[in-house]
């Protein structure tokens, strides 16, 4: 494996009696667009606060490229961040905030910043006190994308954006990917994750339950099969890979397939199949299954 843009080793964070993050070991390669998913309270924002050195880990460690995340003077030269909840000084205009962030930040491509201001249609001459949630988020997004920092950490960056701006966001992520930047994207928008991410990690109750590419996730998961027969349906009990067998009347069955379909297909072939529908689960159903399942 190549260079890691972001790596955690047994990272844990405890708030009093609550274990917010439990032994997270994660490796995001440089140049990758990584989706970080999980229900509310799963520990996504805690992870990001630890990565940014805003909170101190109870145990374990986090690294940004080859520096410790706690060494923010070095680590933050190579990253830019968009918080979930952007708060700005009320009397400063958008342009002033962008100017401040550019001058104390890791270096900014001002030409690209001006282009982003146009694309996101942000009126930067207004004081931040007059901005909506979405407009405040645009300020942080423009500042982050304009840095060209090798790592972008985005915490639910599009929750306040309309669909047109969401499209701009996806384009900006695409540009970042083409530039070789790494994107760490925490999000609830599954369509967005599916559209932009190479790999996803799923966090539940402080634990990482899955890390896989979107395609792998689909493959790993059940396929729903519904079949009707002209004659008597075959007995599929005990056939390898068949789960949740259900009879829909005298001549129809439904079941889910896990892993290789070969054994089930052989069993079906021996009977007189009238119709067969094979449906892959949507990504949403896959995530819902993860979100709802008990911790391992």
């Amino acid at each position: 494996m190549g260079v890691s843009a972001l790596r955690t080793e047994n990272l844990s964070k405890r708030y009093g009696r609550l274990l917010a993050l439990d032994n997270l070991t994660l490796d995001v390669a440089a140049g990758e667009v990584f989706g970080f998913l999980g229900p509310n309270g799963a520990g996504k924002s805690t992870t990001i606060r630890l990565l940014l050195g805003l909170a101190r880990p109870t145990s374990g460690r986090a690294r940004i490229f080859d520096t410790d995340a706690a060494d923010v003077a070095a680590a933050h030269r190579r990253l830019a961040y968009v918080p979930a909840d952007v708060a700005l000084w009320q009397r400063m205009t958008g342009a002033e905030v962008l100017d401040l962030l550019a001058r104390i930040g890791p270096g900014t491509d001002t030409a690209y910043r001006d282009e982003l201001i146009q694309r996101f249609a942000l009126d930067v001459s207004k004081p931040a006190g007059t901005y909506s949630t979405g407009n405040r988020q645009k300020v942080a997004l423009i500042a982050a994308f304009a840095t060209r920092a090798p790592l972008l950490v985005l915490d639910e960056p599009t929750s306040g954006l309309d669909p047109l701006m969401e499209l701009q966001f996806r384009q900006a992520v695409g540009v970042a990917r083409d530039n070789g930047q790494t994107v760490f994207l925490s999000s609830h928008q599954l369509a967005e994750v599916e559209a932009v991410c190479d790999r996803v990690g799923i966090l539940r109750a402080g634990q990482l339950v899955e890390v896989a590419s979107v395609a792998q996730l689909r493959r790993l998961h059940h396929t729903e099969v519904a079949a009707t027969f002209t004659g008597t349906p075959p007995d599929l009990t005990g056939v390898l890979g068949v789960d949740g067998l259900h009879e829909d009347g005298p001549a129809a069955v439904r079941f889910t397939l896990n892993g290789s379909p070969a054994a089930a297909l052989r069993a079906l072939a021996d009977a007189d199949v009238a119709t067969i529908v094979v449906r892959e689960q949507s990504l949403e159903e896959i995530f819902l299954a993860y979100y709802g399942q008990s911790p391992r």
């Binding site: 940014l52 805003l54 923010v72 003077a73 070095a74 680590a75 933050h76 030269r77 990253l79 830019a80 961040y81 918080p83 909840d85 952007v86 708060a87 700005l88 000084w89 905030v97 401040l100 962030l101 104390i104 930040g105 890791p106 942080a140 500042a143």
Partner: peptide, 15 residues
Amino acid sequence: NARRLTLVLAAPVTR
């Protein structure tokens, strides 16, 4: 507390 410092502290600025 109002999270206004978050963006500043996400820059290469030590506490």
